[in-house]
């Protein structure tokens, strides 16, 4: 594995290896000395063309815990705001000797271009591109689901080595604008889980029938009939909807009534079910404060797991021999 661009490219074995490695990385993070010397002398560039707090900090923490040098680059206040192209930025990074580039971009496919255009020989990690993919988020969601629903249920070793066969996951909300939903559908399907997307018809993308999942327009019906083991609430991405909440649903209140996770819906979930949210949350819109702060919500844990998953991805991409060819997962 040279790049991590899309969860659709991962085989089941690769995905399980990533989760297992993340479990070992997580174990090191409860120690007094959290830093490992594994990537000493290697350079990770965080290339962020879009605003991000948790993903960038999470990647930065992960790289530093593995002793890599981290260079942060954000489009604001760089030569990109003077009109530099992605190619010229990439050539600059190449000249500076980056070993891995973590890229977030507003354009879908920008990380793929960076990985395959021959501008760079570094490994590329997609940290979210447009409305396309966000693989490390999906991996940390799968890791969190596995830890809670496979590991704690089976008891042994937090589910190491296991996939998610037989689990049901409902992904609720703004699927149209969500790279998290796309990344999760592909990964959860690969790992054997069953996925149902729940969204108002206006927020379901064209072509969804080709995705390996079911689609529903009714949250209450899905909770009652599909009986999900995990409910993943998506953020309503108002910044991607022209004119505030314009056009996709009549009013925020109506959205909350039909698609928000509140105390009433929370009480109807199965006893073991967990609630996930990729953050940042719009409290009171897609998720109520009761749901976000309840015992079932694993939202804060998701952030902690994000560091372990990103350490695993950086390790598997960067630790092997230099030649990309021999470096299979």
């Amino acid at each position: 594995m040279k790049h991590l661009l899309s969860t659709a490219d991962l085989s089941k074995d690769e995905a399980v290896l990533l989760l297992d490695t993340a479990a070992q990385m997580a174990a090191t993070q409860s120690r007094e000395i959290k830093k490992l010397p594994t990537l000493r002398g290697r350079t990770v560039v965080n290339l962020f063309f879009e605003d991000s707090t948790r993903t960038r900090i999470s990647f930065e923490t992960a790289a530093k815990r593995l002793s890599a040098d981290v260079i942060n680059f954000s489009a604001k206040g760089s030569s990109v705001s003077k009109g530099e192209s992605l190619k010229d930025t990439a050539l600059t990074l190449h000249a500076m000797g980056a070993d891995a580039v973590v890229v977030r971009h507003w354009a879908s496919g920008a990380p793929y271009q960076l990985a395959h255009a021959g501008w760079l020989d570094a490994g590329v990690l997609n940290a979210g591109d447009g409305t396309h993919q966000h693989p490390t988020q999906a991996l940390l969601d799968a890791y969190t689901i596995r830890r809670h629903l496979v590991g704690l249920r089976g008891g042994a070793g937090e589910g190491v080595g296991a996939d998610l066969a037989g689990l049901r996951v409902a992904i609720v909300g703004d699927v149209l604008h969500s790279r998290v939903a796309r990344a999760n559908v592909a990964l959860l399907h690969t790992l054997g889980a069953e996925v149902t997307l729940v969204a108002p018809p206006t927020l379901v993308p064209v072509g969804v029938e080709t995705w390996p999942c079911a689609v529903s327009y009714h949250l209450d019906e899905t909770l009652a009939e599909f009986r999900p083991d995990a409910v993943m609430m998506l953020r309503v991405q108002r910044e991607r909807m022209s004119g505030g909440a314009g056009g996709f649903f009549p009013s925020p209140l109506e959205y909350t009534r039909y698609y928000g996770l509140d105390a009433r819906r929370l009480a109807r979930l199965a006893d073991h079910a967990i609630v996930l949210h990729p953050g940042p949350m719009n409290r009171g819109l897609e998720i109520s404060a009761e749901a976000a702060d309840s015992d079932r919500a694993v939202i804060v844990e998701q952030v902690a797991n994000g560091v372990a998953v990103r350490m695993a991805a950086l390790y598997l991409l960067m630790a092997g021999e230099d030649s990309a060819e021999g470096n299979d997962l």
């Binding site: 070992q24 090191t28 594994t38 593995l66 695993a312 598997l316 630790a319 092997g320």
Partner: peptide
């Protein structure tokens, strides 16, 4: 004690799976 992440030959070999400590 798994020592994979402390090895000095990581870059000379294909990626090793990390074991349990």
């Amino acid at each position: 004690l798994d020592v994979t992440m402390y090895r000095d030959d990581l870059r000379r070999q294909p990626t090793r799976a990390v074991g349990v400590t």
